Computed example of a mutant assay.
Amino acid sequence: MTTLFNSSVERIDSEANALRESFGGQRKVSTGVPRRDPKWERALLEAEAFVQDIRYGRRPLHHFSEAMSTSDFPLLFADSLDRQMYGAYEAVQPTWMNYARAATVNDFRAVKRFASTGVRGLLSKVGELAEHERRGMDEVAYEYAVSKYEAGFALSWEAMINDDLNAFMRLPQDLADSARDSEEEFVTRLFCGVDGPLTSVYTGSNLLTAALDRAALQSAITTLMKRTDENGNPIVVKAVELVVGPGLALQAQEIIDTTEYRTVDASGNVRIISGNGVAANLRISVNYWIPSVATSSNADTSWWVFANPSGPRPAMEFGRLRGFEAPALYEKVPDMRRIGGGEEPFSFDTEAAEKKIKHVYGGSFVDSRMSIASTGAGG
C-alpha cells in the first residue's frame, strides 16, 4: 500500500507541475495573468490544495482512496476483485454395494464363478432293501476379468503460480470421485441397457412392464420371494433392494413412506389398511447413472428389484484386484533441482506437475433369478 501511495503521489505531483507550467509556472493562478473563467480557477486551486495536503499528510489516507477510481489503475484492477471459487459438484453416492456382491481377484486373468444346483431336495421314501436315490449336481460357470482404468492431469508452473483461488487444490479429490463414479457406472451397465432392463439378462418371468406403484412393487417382491432352484427348493430371500433412477426417486420414497392406504371393493366398500405392505426389509437405492446408460424414454420409468447380495447367491458380482482394492493416486517424480539446493515438484523439460489415479476392477451378472425388473412402459 505504501509503494502504491508513493507512486500515485509522484504521479499527482508530476501532473501538478505540468499544470503550473501550462499557466506560466506560477503556484497560484490567481497571482498571474487573469483567467477568463473564475469557476475553472477555483476548481484548479482546490485540486492543487488537495494535492499538497495529500503530499504533506494533512489529509487522511482514506480521502486519497476515495479520490482514486479503478480507471486510475487499469492494470491493477484489470481483473475483478470480486472473485470466488464455487465448490465442485457433489459426487454421486455409490449404491452398487447394496445389490451387487464385492469380491477380490488375484490377477488380470479371467476368474470363474460356479453356481451349482447341489443335491438339496426332499428325501424320498425307500422301501425295505430298496436302493436310495442317487442325485447328480449340475453347475454353471460365470467368468470375468478385471481391467485397469486411469485418468490424470498436468499443471504448468505458470498455472500453479496464478492459482490465487486454490482452484487446483481440489483436483486430486476430483480424481478420487471419478473412480467412485466409474464403479457405479460399470455396475449399472451390468443390469441396465439403452432401453432400461438389459435384454440379455431380463427376459420372460423376470421382466415386467408395470409402472412403479405399491401393487406392482408388491407383486415383484412376492415373485422374487417365491423363486426356487433347479431342484424345486425355495430360495430364501430375506431382504430386497429397490433400484430406481432419479426420475422415480420421489415416487419410490412415497410408496415406502406411506403409512395407510385405502381400497374399494366391487360393492363400493372402503377398507383402510395400515402400513404399505412392502416396506419391511426393503431399501431404496437411487442410481444416478441410470439415465446416462438408458438413453430411451424408459430411463425415467424403469425399476429393478434385487435380492440382497449377502445371500447365498448374488445377482451380480463386482471384483477388484487384490492389493489394489482401493483407487491409488500417483504423482510423477520431479526431476528438477534448484542450484544451491531444493527440489522443484515440476518436470525439468516442461515444468509441469503431473498426477494420476489408477483403479482395477471388473464384474459380471451372475444369477438372473435374483432380480426382477420392469420397463414401466405399461403404466
Results as ranks from 00 to 15, higher is better:
2 T>Y: 14
3 T>S: 10
5 F>P: 01
7 S>L: 13
9 V>R: 11
10 E>M: 12
13 D>M: 14
16 A>N: 11
18 A>D: 11
21 E>I: 07
23 F>L: 14
26 Q>R: 13
27 R>S: 12
27 R>P: 03
33 V>K: 09
46 E>L: 15
46 E>T: 06
53 D>W: 07
53 D>G: 09
54 I>K: 05
55 R>C: 05
62 H>E: 14
63 H>W: 12
67 A>R: 06
69 S>W: 07
70 T>E: 15
74 P>S: 08
75 L>C: 11
80 S>D: 07
82 D>Y: 12
83 R>E: 08
85 M>K: 11
95 T>G: 01
99 Y>S: 04
101 R>S: 11
102 A>C: 04
105 V>K: 03
105 V>A: 03
108 F>G: 03
111 V>K: 08
111 V>P: 00
116 S>W: 05
119 V>T: 04
122 L>M: 13
122 L>E: 12
126 V>I: 06
131 E>H: 03
131 E>L: 11
133 E>Q: 10
133 E>H: 08
134 R>Y: 12
139 E>V: 10
140 V>Q: 15
147 S>G: 10
147 S>M: 10
151 A>D: 13
154 A>Q: 09
155 L>D: 10
155 L>A: 08
160 M>W: 08
160 M>P: 01
163 D>Q: 02
170 R>E: 15
174 D>Q: 08
176 A>N: 13
179 A>G: 09
188 T>V: 01
192 C>Y: 02
196 G>S: 06
197 P>F: 07
198 L>N: 02
205 S>F: 03
206 N>R: 08
209 T>L: 09
211 A>E: 11
220 A>N: 02
221 I>R: 09
223 T>A: 14
225 M>I: 07
227 R>N: 09
230 E>Y: 07
230 E>W: 10
235 I>R: 12
238 K>W: 04
239 A>L: 08
243 V>F: 06
245 G>F: 10
253 Q>P: 02
255 I>V: 06
257 D>S: 12
267 S>G: 14
268 G>K: 09
271 R>L: 13
271 R>V: 11
272 I>W: 00
278 V>D: 04
279 A>G: 06
281 N>K: 12
283 R>Y: 13
285 S>H: 01
285 S>V: 01
286 V>L: 07
289 W>G: 02
297 S>T: 12
299 A>L: 03
300 D>K: 08
302 S>Q: 11
303 W>M: 11
304 W>I: 07
304 W>V: 03
304 W>Q: 12
308 N>F: 03
311 G>I: 01
317 E>A: 12
318 F>H: 10
319 G>A: 14
328 A>K: 13
330 Y>T: 00
331 E>S: 14
334 P>T: 03
335 D>M: 05
337 R>C: 09
343 E>K: 13
344 E>W: 12
348 F>N: 10
355 K>W: 15
355 K>Y: 14
356 K>V: 00
356 K>D: 00
362 G>R: 02
363 G>P: 01
365 F>I: 05
371 S>D: 03
371 S>N: 02
372 I>S: 04
377 A>L: 12
377 A>H: 00
